Amino acid sequence: MYSSVCSLGCPVLTKQLGAHITLFSRRSDPLDKAREEVTLACASKDQDVNTVMVDMGDDQEVKEAFESQSRPADILYCAAGGNYDQNGFFVDLTAKDLENCMRNNYFSAAYAAKIMMHIWLTEDASVVKPTHQRHREIIFINSCAAFLGLPGSIAYTTSKTAVRALAHTLRMEVLRHNCADSKYSIHIAFPGDFVSPGFMKEQQTKVPLNKKIQGLEQPIEQLLHKFPTSDKVASLIVRAADRGDFIICEDSFAANALFSNMLGPSPKRGWGVFDALMSPLMGWIVIPYLR
């Protein structure tokens, strides 16, 4: 399994998947910390834990890093991103801020998925055939910010909306590549706020209006009790991906409700009952009232 390093429960991923894992990040400190946590969480001494320092927003660096691995991954978690440095109103942001936010959140996911798909399809085309069908998965860790434009998060919301569009389209395109050798699936998670180092840093740069709308005006101690931990969110995402869910909004009722108001081309979840009932309620009553 390959994963870009973020604040999202890497030890949980390791425990639940029991996989060899390679972590990618452009900064050494998060990599070292993640490696230590993942190593301690390994269920078996046979699990390999590797780290690679790479700028996930640079397609050439990602290509070289992925292709240099000793084994291709079967699961790719695209979890890089954040908006600590790009919080603010549109008129106050620079063009570079907008570019960097898109690079950190959208291109880091798009490049990783693109290059991994190329590696997988090249392997499918080789003369060496697997003994059983491989299941290849890409899981995009997005944000429920993609469902709601909030003042002060305009750069972040735009980039996360782009990731959603990427996952939707790629979900249909990979159907062309299913074969006897490999089966492909795409998943995308939309977690709400959860407690992590990134969450703590973002509170320092969010504008007051954004905090008020999101209910983040309380002291940090209260916020720590209000939101789930990164390990909890990671555990829910892994279980949902194992079930085969495409849309994953497991960590909060708010994320579920917001998604039902922004169904678009997304398939309804489960039997579709919750989304079918919640969608008109959100569209006709809740959102007009809040707006």
Results as ranks from 00 to 15, higher is better:
residue 155 A to F: 00
residue 248 I to V: 12
residue 191 P to Q: 12
residue 179 C to G: 12
residue 146 A to N: 01
residue 143 S to I: 01
residue 193 D to Y: 12
residue 146 A to P: 01
residue 259 F to V: 01
residue 180 A to S: 14
residue 18 G to L: 06
residue 288 P to G: 07
residue 213 I to M: 00
residue 29 D to R: 08
residue 278 M to L: 08
residue 21 I to V: 15
residue 141 I to V: 15
residue 30 P to F: 01
residue 26 R to S: 13
residue 172 M to S: 06
residue 76 L to E: 11
residue 147 F to W: 08
residue 197 P to C: 09
residue 13 L to N: 04
residue 12 V to W: 00
residue 153 S to L: 08
residue 277 L to T: 09
residue 69 Q to E: 11
residue 223 L to G: 03
residue 38 V to G: 02
residue 130 P to E: 09
residue 59 D to E: 15
residue 221 E to S: 14
residue 274 F to N: 05
residue 44 S to G: 10
residue 62 V to R: 13
residue 219 P to V: 08
residue 204 Q to L: 07
residue 179 C to Y: 04
residue 12 V to A: 10
residue 39 T to F: 03
residue 158 T to M: 13
residue 259 F to A: 03
residue 158 T to P: 00
residue 246 F to W: 06
residue 97 D to G: 10
residue 218 Q to D: 11
residue 188 I to K: 02
residue 111 Y to Q: 13
residue 269 R to K: 08
residue 112 A to H: 12
residue 233 V to W: 02
residue 138 I to A: 08
residue 221 E to I: 08
residue 6 C to G: 15
residue 141 I to R: 00
residue 2 Y to M: 14
residue 201 K to E: 01
residue 104 N to M: 13
residue 1 M to N: 12
residue 261 N to A: 15
residue 191 P to D: 07
residue 248 I to S: 07
residue 151 P to F: 00
residue 265 P to S: 12
residue 255 A to W: 00
residue 237 I to E: 01
residue 34 A to C: 11
residue 250 E to I: 14
residue 173 E to L: 03
residue 50 N to C: 11
residue 40 L to D: 09
residue 99 E to R: 12
residue 284 W to V: 03
